[in-house]
Design a protein around this nucleic acid. Structure first.
Lengths: 344, 344
DNA sequence: CCCGCGTATGTTATCGCTATCATCCAAAAG
DNA sequence: CTTTTGGATGATAGCGATAACATACGCGGG
């Protein structure tokens, strides 16, 4: 941007301007702006006044270049529109509160290529740590992360070969638990509604868990509807349940890759006059707000999205201040639990 | 952070390391990394190889200090968990794609004090522009924005005294239109369900619009239930509709400050065996995905959240490259329209 | 054969801040 | 009264990149 000085656009004041006005050196201003530095209260007050008079705002780019600490933490999630992931982002932000670290958030739209671009864009900003969703990355992305020399936390998953630290759970096991819970309740003919691509690795793992659990129980795992690419929409769930009922009219319970598709399915059933759970039972995954509020209330798996974010950020800050004796555990398993409600 | 060199942690390579390895000067490396600079293809290739061998990643903090362009755009939204606002964030990101600008996102939890903190935190990063939600700020926040010397875009609203540019709509008028539309359909006894505080300024304006429209029509605007602070939850809508039906059992249609509370209300009515819209009609605001998918499908007001974000970002980039003849219009009004569905 | 010009590259000087070391001084300790 | 100590402040030197200017070179026209 070529700054045309039109008379009113004065150059932004720098720390030197503040120092001059307060009659101190720039170094003292710098100290006054940092917590826990020794600056006499009289000086501090003069500096504060000068700052207010000039409307000075610290330039952190310059500061971080000098101090070699940017104060950034990067986080990459698949989608900002999915409240499960935005809950995780909220958990990260909340845990970062008061640490002086600021979140740099990016989202991939479930694309590893986009993730790779984002990783590079983020690393250019020299974050002090990075939090990722899942354990699937491009080779180049993985290499960049390994070489970055900062803590890396993979979340929402249990990667077979973690890059560094992990805060997550097994999506497959969680789905297995849901199947087992419902089987114990007497259901026998299970259907699954999920995305068609492998882009959503957590979705694939849930489906794999569905199949494993049914095989173990000696039940059929054939009733699977694949309905399109992420991001998962409610509408897709509505269409999918129709296909399912056409192909396998005897399906007793439809498990969905997410509460969102489950909700779409639930509403579609009501629209067609089917009673849930009498005619067909429906369960979701994720325990979104909607699952607790819809009618009938939805059975689902709660996976503590917010806690994943919180714990990831905590592990990150602990690792950054790594002088502590017990370096944080490499893997933190977060809990999941089936929440049985009226829809099953 | 004191970096203890434990043997494996080598210092990250700098541009000079790349330059030395490629047998050129740092400046040439810098040029090779920037589009549209003259670097011979042989040299460029040597540099690229050196970069890959060293695993070099550009340090943009340092670059922006020198070039006085950070490549950041700041955006502040009330909540990351509300899909209306995250749609706006998506619109911003998408419009920024390819411009070399990166989004720095923060959210306030509907608190102007938190907004003030965020404004300062963002300005410390020297963004090239800033996008805000709404026109309510603390005096200090406003002053900082005015003095920042960068384009400021207020969105989602029509502030009486804009700081700079605006991309938004009148929440009051939108609600008026909804009331009028439903009145034309024959409804006479309107109720309103909204938050209790003034923190959510858009919510207050919608309520004001509700009252204005009914007064103009000569109808009662007394049936108002206030149910708690933002963020708005579905559950609050469920509770509020119960209160409403207790206090004003004759209510014909309940307008809600948001689709989320409307949905909660809708489900609660079904739970109680009330038929929507026969026993009570319900309408929301925002046209969330849920409104199009629930049963019965919900009447609401679409306000093009994504478009607000896109247009705000476009206006921002146009203003930044302000050499163009027609500086962008100060105010862009985005459209809204009532979407009539089955719930009314 | 020289001049001019545009492309390719190098040199130098910051950008605004903070780490580090040096200095000064008053109060506590001996 | 001297020495020690530590708080308060200043001077200096970069952090890693890029803007701006300088230089070198090749090629076509006069």
């Amino acid at each position: 941007m070529t700054k045309i000085n039109d008379g009113k656009t004065t150059e932004a004041p720098t720390m030197n301007d503040v120092a001059r006005r307060a009659g101190v050196s720039a170094m003292t201003v710098s100290r006054a702006l940092k917590e826990g530095s020794h600056v006499s209260s009289a000086t501090r007050e003069r500096i504060t006044r000068a700052i207010n008079e000039l409307g000075y705002v610290l330039d952190q780019s310059a500061g971080s270049l000098s101090s070699r600490r940017t104060g950034f933490v990067a986080a990459i999630i698949p989608s900002i529109n999915n409240s499960n992931f935005s809950d995780t982002a909220r958990g990260i932000t909340d845990a970062l509160e008061g640490t002086g670290l600021q979140l740099l958030l990016g989202y991939t739209n479930y694309s590893v290529e986009r993730e790779e671009e984002l990783i590079e864009a983020m690393l250019r900003r020299r974050p002090e740590g990075i939090i990722l969703t899942g354990g699937s990355h491009t080779p180049k992305g993985r290499r960049m992360l390994e070489q970055a020399g900062i803590p890396v936390i993979e979340t929402w998953d249990r990667p077979a070969q973690p890059i560094d630290k992990v805060v997550g759970f097994s999506n497959g096991e969680a789905m297995e638990l849901l199947v087992e819970t419902l089987a114990r309740k007497g259901y026998r003919r299970f259907g699954y509604i999920g995305g068609v691509t492998a882009r959503d690795t957590r979705g694939s793992q849930r489906r794999a868990g569905f199949v494993r659990a049914l095989e173990r129980l000696g039940l059929s795992s054939d009733r699977v509807i694949s309905f399109g690419v992420p991001p998962i929409s409610m509408e897709q769930g509505a269409q999918a349940v129709v296909s399912m009922l056409e192909r396998w009219p005897d399906t007793q319970v439809a498990l969905c890759v997410s509460d969102l598709s489950a909700f779409g399915a639930l509403m579609e059933c009501q629209r067609r006059g089917l009673k849930v759970p009498q005619d067909i039972a429906i369960a979701g995954f994720g325990d979104y707000e909607i699952a607790a509020c819809c009618h009938p209330r939805m059975t689902t798996v709660n996976v503590d999205c917010y806690g994943i974010g919180r714990q990831a950020a905590l592990k990150l800050t602990q690792t950054i201040q790594a002088q502590s004796p017990g370096t944080p555990e490499p893997v933190t398993l977060t809990g999941f639990r089936v929440i049985e409600r009226e829809s099953t």
